[in-house]
Structure formats: structure tokens, C-alpha cells
Design a protein around this nucleic acid. Sequence first.
RNA 1: AGGAGCGUAGCUCAAAGGCAGAGCACUGGGUUGUGGUCCCAGUUGUUGCGGGUUCGAUUCCCGUCGCUCCUCCCA
Length: 423
Amino acid sequence: MKYYAPKGLYDIKPEDMPYWHAVEREVRSTMPLYGYEEIRTPIMEKTEVFARGVGEETDVVSKEMYTFEDKGGRSMTLRPENTASVVRAYLEHKFYGKEELSKWYYLGPMFRYESPQKGRSRQFHQYGAEAIGSSDPSLDAEMISLSTDLLRSLGLEEVGLTLNSIGCPEDRNNYVNQLVEYLEPEKDRLCNDCRARLDTNPLRILDCKEESCQKVVENGPEITDYLCSECQDHFDTVKGYLNQLGLDYQLDPKLVRGLDYYTKTVFEVFSSDLGAQDALVGGGRYDGLVELFGGDPTPAVGFAGGIERLVLLLEELERVEMKKNGLDIYLATLDEETKQTGMELVQELRNGGIRAEIDYLDKSLQGQLGYADRYGAEITAILGPRELTEGEITLRDMETGDQTTVSLDEFRSEITNRLDSES
RNA sequence: AGGAGCGUAGCUCAAAGGCAGAGCACUGGGUUGUGGUCCCAGUUGUUGCGGGUUCGAUUCCCGUCGCUCCUCCCA
């Protein structure tokens, strides 16, 4: 084979579509229930939008960006996530002057340049929501409840929710200082990556999978002990709302997440039925991001979920009904003359909202009936020279095999009646 | 970036140095104009690509491309 899709990019084939449609349908119907409106931002931005917004030291920016130069010599990047773009759009269109609270959702492709594996590709798809303009803990709880509600609506009950608060920047500074102070003497027991992180991004050491690092971190300080009273209150209130909503969660003081912009609440939803890439949803509060982009200090919270991973689960659990093509009627013809009339009849049916097909492969009548059967036609209409000269057409019920003959004039109404009574 | 596994018919897979096969699918026939079950027959290949060893390579070796999974990190 000479041509294939670039590494990490792949085709979503017609046979996969029912799953994608199920997810998209659910997102589009659930988001408005919570008051979120759709926003669509471009799939690429100037590189600095992500570099600044997401954070230079993050993995996403430092090694996973799909970056290239356009013809004007500008550095462009295919969006690795959507929050930075949404905040950029929020400020660009001055929404802070138009509405007190902006609640938006999105759905679309994201790009990260890394080795593909199960549940991870270079182009992948996310749905997500952002609420900009309120620091109220109820909004944090709403985000979490929205993200799990969506999964539940799709039939996924077996998901875990982990929760943490990483406080405000001051808390985090205090904590990071303590953490570095604690880790410095233990440096030798850390992996190479983590020794580097000690200088660049010490928080990331917390979720290093290396066993030795885990051991070191285990007895170290925990961020939740360094929250200021406001952040502590906020966190407690969020937990209170979650309890009120009956949402089970697991506190994980080591959950820090990979993007720099998070403050206070962070959460992840995961499934143990996935492979190594088990995170379904990730999100949190980002009270400093709008300001970082040059706006007034504006609190915000959001989440994003991966559609590929969701589709993987739905396929495994067979939660989505797979319908074959959905053909109402197949029109079999036997020669050129009947095909000409047949084309006209099929067109007429389609104009009337009936899914109809005719032979495109010059098949025998036997072959045509087989095709009609495989594609799930309820009725096959047979138009041969015999019928044509009589001004009639034969209707075969594909389930019972019963056949009747009707005049061509009655054809449309007879078909409509039959399809109505069967459905 | 690193590690492991895999590339044979449209699909799922056999052949472990000696004629490249089976099932499914497809086409035709049994049925002069009738599907699903059944029976009979037929079509289908640069064995990913390039080189090497050999009388002989799908098989062994080297390289290369691709895919998959994993480490890291995340959706």
C-alpha cells in the first residue's frame, strides 16, 4: 500500500460512526441542560497562546505540541487542548462586558505530537465545558457532576472520580518550597526525570510512576496541609456539594495535573476498563488564566473528556445499538428499460422521505434480493418487463416472503402505508 | 525518545526450508424472474519492501517501512 494516514492520525470509519454519534448527541443534549452554549474556536492558534496559557514547563508544551511555521513565518500550533483558546476568545470578544458568567461547551479535534498507543492518538477528540466568571464552589461541583452525568447517560457506571485541591498560587508556592526542602536530601533516590523536575516543576514528582519516587513522596508533605483558609473553605464546600449530590469521590493529595493554569479544585475521572491510558475526563479551576492573558482577574473552571477513550469503552460494553444502514426499500430492476422507470420511482420515494436503493452493480435478481437482505430492506419492489407492461410493480415483504402486485399509481401510497404500520 | 510484538487473499488466520492453504465474503449454478438455510462449482496473492544465506526462503539472517502494545505524560 502506497498511501496511508500519517502516524497517529486515523480515519473514523462509517462502521464506527454510531458510537461517535452517540457521544456527540449526548454532549449536545446534556450541556444545554446545565446552561452551556457551544463555542467553536479555530483548531490552531499562534504558538504563544498555548505556550503561555498552558505553561512552558508542562509536557504538553515542552514536547507534545504540533507546531509549524506558516507562509508568513509565524509559529502556529494545532491546539493540544481547548481551554487556552476559549479564554483567548473570551477576551478577544470582550465577553466580560457582555455577560456576567460565560458557560460554554465545545467538541472537536485536538492534536498532540507523541507516540500513539491504545486510547491515544496525535489527533484525538475532546468535548468539554468552561465556565468563566464565578469562583463559587457550586460551579466546581457542577462541572464534576456534569462530567459524570454525561458518562452515566452513555451507560458508563463503573468510573472512578478522584479529587484534590492545589490551592491558590501562594499556597502552592509555600507547599512547593516545603516539598523541595523535603526532597532535596532524598535526591539520590529519585529517578533522572524527577531530579530535573526538582528545578523545573517539582509538583510533577508527585505523580511520577517510578516506584522509588513514589516511596520518597509517600512520606513527604501534602498540599492539602498547606491550603489557606479561603482555599480550605472552598474545597470543603465543593466536597459538601458533591456529598449533597450523592457523588462518590476519592481524595488524592497527589493529583496535581499536568497543566500550569490550575488552581484550587482539580479532578479526574477514570475507568479501569481502559488500558494504560485510563483517564476519561480531567478538569479543574483556573482562576489565574484570564489574568495571565491580560484580562482582569476572572475566576473560571472547566473540564475536558476524551472521545476516543469513551468510544473504546462503548465498543467494549456494546452500549450502542449498531444499526445496519437502515434501508426501507430496495427496488430490483431487470433490464435497462425497467431501470429507467426504477430510477424515477426511487427518486420519488426519497423525495417522500423513504430510504430507497436500486441496483448499481448489474446484479441478477437473485443477487439483488441478496443485497436487499444484507442491507436490511423491509420491502423489495420488483419491477420487471412483465410488471412494466401491465403498469404494475411487485412488492415482496422481506420478512415473510409474501408478494403482492400493485399498480404503479398506488406504489408510493402503498409503500408509505406499509412502512408506517410496521414501525 | 526507548522497549516488546506483529506484517501471508477483501476479512480472520494456517503453512516452521520443498507445489501458498482454510474459513468467511464475493460470483455462477441447483431455481429460464425471487434473499436468508442447504448443496455444487469458480474468482482472489509482488507472503509489507530491499538485500543476504541456500539447489530451493512465507519460513533463517541483516536492513528498511508500517502497524500494535508498553514506559513517560495525559483526554
